[in-house]
């Protein structure tokens, strides 16, 4: 029953909250969607925390995505032990980088008075989820080798079953690794919290900046139509100011 709650009910609840919540917040509460950068209040320590943290997560996120989407290619790559080692060590290094980064960010937030002022309750939640997620991930990588290979056997089928609405939790529930279970549960918790926290900002990553033109001009009027409008009358300004 617990397994069912954690590995079937929670994922669906999370994905549902994530979808509806994110769309609602983006459309109706646009003003609140922001990365809430605090670099303006403190810049130097942010550099040592934010850079390793974000780049670490950035690489790991795509690593997980590739392992989920193309498990066979990853297995093929891992056919050579050297290549497996390179992959695992690289991934672990980025995990450590994210871990060190988040620790420095937590320390900065706890000790800098200005940053404390702009820390909300939800920011605390964000940090707890991130710590659990990153620590459990590192433990899995260290104790249950080699994740890039067994991911295809245990995690990919489970995740796929979730997304095709035919949940099969046996593979994941039978794994004898508490840290892996925590990692999965906390991942879905993180997804559920996206619409309620500053996690939102990664959804609005400005990818469209790469193809849009640099300058942006917005017209309120339809210029040509106003010009030809017959009913158009010239505005007159009051003269009493």
């Amino acid at each position: 029953m617990t397994n069912y709650l954690l590995f079937v009910a929670l994922p669906y609840a999370s994905l549902f909250i994530f979808l509806i919540g994110s769309i609602y917040r983006y459309r109706n509460r646009g003003f609140s969607v922001s990365s809430y950068s605090s670099q303006f209040l403190e810049g130097r320590r942010l550099f040592w925390g934010s850079q390793p943290f974000h780049w670490g997560l950035f690489v790991l996120f795509f690593g997980h995505l590739i392992a989920f989407l193309f498990p066979k290619s990853v297995l093929a790559w891992n056919g050579e032990p050297v290549r497996l080692l390179i992959l695992e060590i690289t991934a672990f290094a980025f995990g450590l980088s994210a871990f060190v980064g988040v620790l420095l960010l937590v320390q900065r937030r706890l000790t800098n008075r200005r940053i404390q002022i702009v820390t909300s309750k939800m920011d605390v939640v964000v940090f707890i989820i991130l710590l659990v997620q990153i620590i459990s991930g590192l433990l899995v990588a260290y104790h249950n080798r080699w994740g890039s290979s067994w991911f295809a056997a245990f995690v990919t089928p489970y995740l796929r079953s979730i997304f095709v609405f035919d949940p099969q939790m046996d593979a994941i529930a039978s794994v004898d690794s508490l840290s892996l279970k925590i990692h999965v549960v906390s991942a879905f918790t993180l997804i559920a919290f996206i619409p309620f926290t500053r996690f939102m900002h990664f959804l609005v990553y400005p990818l469209d900046y790469t193809w849009r033109s640099y300058q942006q001009v917005i017209w309120n009027w339809n210029r040509k139509r106003i010009r030809t409008s017959r009913s158009h009358s010239e505005g007159r300004k009051s003269t009493n100011n």
């Binding site: 609005v204 400005p206 469209d208 900046y209 849009r212 640099y214 300058q215 942006q216 001009v217 917005i218 017209w219 309120n220 009027w221 210029r223």
Partner: peptide, 19 residues
């Protein structure tokens, strides 16, 4: 006329009003 802030905004939030 050639605003650097508009050009630098990744989210496209800054704009010049045409009128």
């Amino acid at each position: 006329l050639n605003p650097a802030c508009v050009a630098s905004c990744p989210s496209g939030a800054i704009y010049k009003r045409g009128e």
